[in-house]
Amino acid sequence: MTLVAAPLALAAAFGIVTFLGSGAATGAAPSEPVDGAELFATQCSSCHGLDGLGVEGRGPTLEPEGEASADFVLRTGRMPMATTDRQAHRGPVRYSEEEIVALVEHVGMIGSGPDTPNIEIEGADVSNGGELYRLNCAACHVASGAGAPIGGGRQAPNLLEATPTEVGQAIIVGPGSMPVFSEFEPQELNDIAAYIHEALTDDDTTSASRFGGAGPVAEGLAAWILALIPLVALTRWIGRPKDGRDHPEDAAGPDGDDGEPSIDDGTEDSELVST
């Protein structure tokens, strides 16, 4: 995925950044306090409306969203979107820390969604997180965390790039097509985030090379490309006929003792051959 998607994402991001060019995003002086409402008006309102309740045909209302949601999309570079006809992808972050804090606070006032959970992976129960992950997450995000297409042209993103806090936010917010998982206890969020971080992202279980977590498909490809084709090349080397080494042998036919080797070496069956 990354091979193909990365250049596309880069190109899209580049387009956005140049488009926004000299906007307020980069213009704000570091010492000045950032006005969230003003920033929202210049950066977000063209799609979400000045009041944050959405613009018909361009962007959804932020009423059900909240600080967790705003923080998630801004810190993963999903907002502002390159184009609205595709799912928002992770990309470069376009705002400074102060601007993000201000925007998140502003969106928090518009919407009624949850605040960012406090995710603490230190001391979490990784094993329990793994069980919850397999029951709730792996069906879309893959056991390896590699992410997979989920239909309708949408992707469950790769989780290996997500921070524990982003994982927690996504679980309670349900960005894009993802359902909201509101039934988890705070400790369970910590466990899941810890599992993703420790067992998948920082996986050093074996030192063997892996194939992007794509499972048997990648393994089958590897078997053909790395084992079968080299071995066929080796048979080409081994099986090269050497002129002068070839000997003929009488053909078989399953019908009798005609399988005598046929080099005429002066022994009794030379007569047999020449008759």
């Binding site: 793994g130 069980e131 397999r134 029951l135 792996a138 069906a139 879309c140 995000h141 893959v142 056991a143 390896s144 590699a146 997979a148 469950a156 067992a199 998948l200 996986d203 279980t205 074996t206 063997a208 090379s209 892996r210 194939f211 977590g213 794509a214 499972g215 048997p216 498909v217 393994e219 590897a222 790395l226």
Partner: peptide, 23 residues
């Protein structure tokens, strides 16, 4: 050199669990 079928990543079978790229 190459990892194959990392069962520790897939975890034990559970009728309620599922994973994508299940080939």
């Amino acid at each position: 050199i190459f990892e194959i079928n990392p069962v520790w990543l897939y975890g034990p079978y559970d009728t309620a669990a599922a994973t994508s790229f299940a080939q």
